[in-house]
Design a protein around this nucleic acid. Structure first.
Lengths: 204, 204
DNA sequence: ACAGCCATGTAACTTGTTACATGATTTT
DNA sequence: AAAATCATGTAACAAGTTACATGGCTGT
């Protein structure tokens, strides 16, 4: 979806051709996602099929240029008008991994957390390095992308810490409730209170 | 990748069949991602082709059961031992959207931010509701997934706020540097200082 | 009898990745 | 002359979605 909408947005600026569109896209997102050129062409073909862009043929310099249609302009407007849906959240491999590690005898959850924390911290250092080398005026949009990565990485670290705490709590609960049967309800509410205290404020 | 590894992890627990694997996966991730059954079967076929699982035929009750192989067990161990790679970060549609909105004449960045903020806040309320209905012992792994969503949503809100600030700063810079030419270097460092103050601490 | 869940698959399609083929133009 | 970059594509594949076909078994 991202590439499709990205191409449309750029074409709303004026006619362009595949190779140039890729360059502009990569430029604005700072090359964080090495964007493969093959997909640009196939996406353009599909956009044409769907009536959102039209081929205007050669531009004289041998470039297969495309032009946005009215329907395409409408699609861009729709895209910007509606939020990115988190209704069906992206399958986050890390979340799945940790969730599965909890119930699995072959994985040590603590280790998984530790390995991930190290990797994410390293990534954050790399982000900081990239940020230092960017110009706050020229590279504005790519800095926004970088910021997004930084905030996501931070959230990941926070979540890893939080998960460790939650797991420790759960382990404690299992051992205590193993002796007293009806204590389950009581410790559960205690855990809830802890959980609330552990979390950042939801209201803003 | 997530489904593939998920199935392998569950099979490391013991032989199982498609429908049951899907149920267990959905159970552990809390149904946040409605997992389609078709893919389970095709993934199992591919895993078998790759020698990571082996079909053990009918289990008597008419279930096409699969068993993990030694190679499969190795793959699971490898997965848990190595971090989830953020080297090639997931194409984040929202980040791309905002980056493109900055340079586009057809989009109003402020509006895009506002629309997204509203949607994300609403999602957070839904997460809170789901969290309230979960049992901290029985639904441990699914609570971890939910936490992940909450932390991500929070990071998103933070990033949106931050982006608004950065955009305002950039707009101010464009207007001031329009008059004095060599002021660019000076305001750039000022902006950097602001940016640092605006961000959460990186060190822990 | 009918609805609904259990269970296994297949087909068509989209998005994305990697790799390759081909040729023109530009730089070293 | 060789290498790099510009430029347009195609092919094969992985992963995921939606929808459909098929049949057994259970509950009302």
């Amino acid at each position: 979806m991202s590439v499709r909408h990205g191409l449309l947005t750029l074409l709303a600026d004026g006619p362009s051709y595949g190779y140039q569109l890729r360059a502009r896209l990569e430029d604005q997102t700072g090359g964080t996602w090495p964007l493969n050129i093959g997909q640009i062409y196939t996406t353009l073909t599909r956009l044409q099929r769907d009536g959102l862009v039209a081929a205007v043929g050669d531009d004289g310099a041998g470039h297969a240029t495309y032009q946005i249609t009215d329907a395409g302009r409408g699609a861009v407007a729709d895209w910007f008008r509606s939020p990115v849906s988190r209704a069906a959240p992206a399958r986050d491999e890390l979340a799945i991994k940790l969730a599965l590690a909890v119930g699995s005898p072959v994985a040590d959850v603590r280790d998984v957390i530790q390995v991930q924390r190290t990797a994410t911290m390293r990534a954050m250092q790399e982000y900081a390095r990239l940020k230092a080398g960017a110009d706050p005026v020229d590279d504005l949009s790519w800095l926004l992308v970088l910021d997004s990565l930084v905030f996501q990485a931070e959230a990941e670290i926070r979540w890893l810490d939080h998960s460790e705490a939650r797991l420790a709590r759960a382990a404690h609960q299992r051992t205590t409730t193993a002796t007293t049967a009806d204590a389950a309800a009581g410790t559960a509410t205690d855990a809830d209170a802890d959980a609330v205290a552990d979390e950042p404020e939801v209201a803003r």
